[in-house]
Deep mutational scan, measured.
Amino acid sequence: EEPWTQNQQKLLELALQQYPRGSSDRWDKIARCVPSKSKEDCIARYKLLVE
């Protein structure tokens, strides 16, 4: 798996703010905001960050 770039991390953080918990299809929308990362990548990264 490719490491996360600073840019991808920033895009993930912005998308998390844009689509708060409870948004419909939240992770699909977030993944579309982060180039070359899947929905599963984004969820895994999020879990890593909040632990």
Rank of each mutant, 00 (worst) to 15 (best):
Y19R: 00
P35C: 07
P35F: 03
K29Q: 08
A31Y: 02
K29E: 13
S24I: 13
S23A: 12
T5N: 11
S23C: 08
W27V: 02
R32W: 06
A15D: 01
V50C: 13
D28H: 05
K39E: 06
P20L: 04
Q9C: 10
S36P: 13
V50A: 14
Q8M: 07
N7L: 10
I30G: 00
K47V: 06
P3F: 15
S38K: 05
D28S: 13
E40S: 09
R26V: 05
P20N: 02
R32M: 08
K10V: 12
L12S: 01
Q17Y: 06
P3A: 13
A15I: 00
V50W: 14
E2N: 08
R21C: 07
Y46L: 04
I43L: 11
T5L: 03
R32T: 12
P3K: 15
S24K: 13
R26S: 05
S38Q: 05
C42V: 07
D25T: 07
L48W: 12
I43S: 05
G22M: 11
S23W: 05
I30M: 00
G22Q: 09
Q18N: 07
L48R: 12
R26A: 10
T5P: 01
V50P: 09
L49W: 14
L48M: 14
D28L: 08
W4A: 00
R26E: 05
I43H: 08
L16H: 02
C33M: 09
S38F: 01
W4E: 03
E40A: 12
K39H: 03
A31S: 12
R45E: 04
R21F: 11
C33A: 11
K10G: 08
K47W: 04
A15S: 07
S38L: 03
K39Q: 08
V34I: 15
A15W: 00
A15T: 00
N7M: 11
L12Q: 02
Q17K: 13
Y46P: 02
V34S: 00
P35E: 09
R32G: 13
L48K: 10
W4P: 02
K10P: 00
S23Q: 15
I30A: 02
Q17H: 09
R32L: 12
L16E: 03
C42E: 00
E51N: 05
D25A: 05
E40N: 13
S38A: 06
K10Q: 13
D25E: 12
V50F: 14
E13D: 12
R21A: 13
K39W: 01
I43M: 15
S24P: 14
K29C: 09
K47D: 10
L14K: 15
P35Y: 06
L16N: 03
E2R: 03
Q18K: 15
Q18Y: 08
Q6W: 04
P35D: 08
L49M: 13
E51L: 03
E1S: 14
D25Q: 09
S36C: 08
D41F: 01
T5Q: 03
P20G: 07
L16R: 02
L48C: 14
P35M: 07
L14E: 10
P3L: 15
E40H: 09
R32F: 09
Q6R: 11
N7C: 14
D28Y: 04
L12K: 00
V34G: 00
V50Q: 14
A31W: 03
I43D: 02
L49V: 13
L16Q: 04
D28F: 03
K29N: 12
R21G: 13
P3N: 10
L14H: 08
K29M: 13
S24W: 09
L12G: 02
R32C: 10
Q9N: 07
Q6E: 15
C42F: 00
R45H: 11
S36M: 07
Q18W: 09
Q8K: 01
T5G: 05
R45Y: 15
G22K: 06
R45P: 01
L14Q: 12
L14T: 11
T5A: 06
W27G: 02
R32I: 12
E13H: 03
S24C: 12
W27Q: 03
E40R: 09
V50M: 11
P20V: 04
S36V: 08
E40M: 10
Q18L: 10
W27F: 08
S38M: 05
Y19A: 03
Y46T: 11
Q6A: 14
W27A: 05
K39N: 03
E13P: 01
N7D: 08
E13Q: 08
L14P: 02
E2G: 05
V34D: 00
Q8Y: 01
D25Y: 10
I43A: 09
T5E: 06
Q9D: 06
L14C: 12
P20S: 07
P3I: 15
W4L: 00
V34E: 00
Q6V: 13
W4S: 03
P3M: 15
N7A: 10
Q6S: 06
Q18G: 03
Y19G: 01
V34T: 03
S23P: 10
V50I: 12
L12C: 00
L14A: 13
V50T: 11
A15V: 00
V34L: 06
K37Q: 04
L48Y: 07
E2K: 04
G22C: 07
Q17N: 15
S24L: 13
L49C: 10
A44K: 08
E13S: 09
I43E: 11
P3S: 15
Q18R: 10
S24E: 14
K10Y: 10
V50N: 15
Q17L: 11
C42P: 00
K29G: 05
E13F: 04
S24F: 03
P20H: 05
R26G: 04
K47I: 06
S24T: 14
L14I: 12
K39G: 04
A44T: 06
S36T: 11
L49S: 15
E40F: 05
P35H: 09
Q6F: 06
A31M: 03
C33R: 10
R45K: 10
Q6L: 11
S38R: 08
I30D: 02
Q18V: 06
A31V: 03
E40W: 11
E2M: 15
L11M: 13
Q9T: 12
E13N: 07
Q8G: 01
K10L: 11
G22P: 06
R32S: 13
C42S: 00
C42N: 00
S36N: 07
L16Y: 06
A15L: 03
A44W: 04
Q18T: 10
C33N: 06
Q6M: 14
L16C: 07
K37E: 00
P3Q: 14
V50H: 14
E1D: 10
A31R: 03
Y19P: 01
P35R: 07
L14G: 10
Y19E: 04
Y19M: 02
C33P: 01
K37T: 00
S36A: 13
L11C: 14
S38N: 08
N7S: 14
K29A: 11
S23N: 06
E13Y: 09
D41I: 01
Y46V: 12
V34W: 00
E2D: 15
N7I: 06
L48S: 14
Q17E: 11
I43P: 00
P35A: 11
Y19T: 05
E51D: 09
K37W: 00
E1R: 02
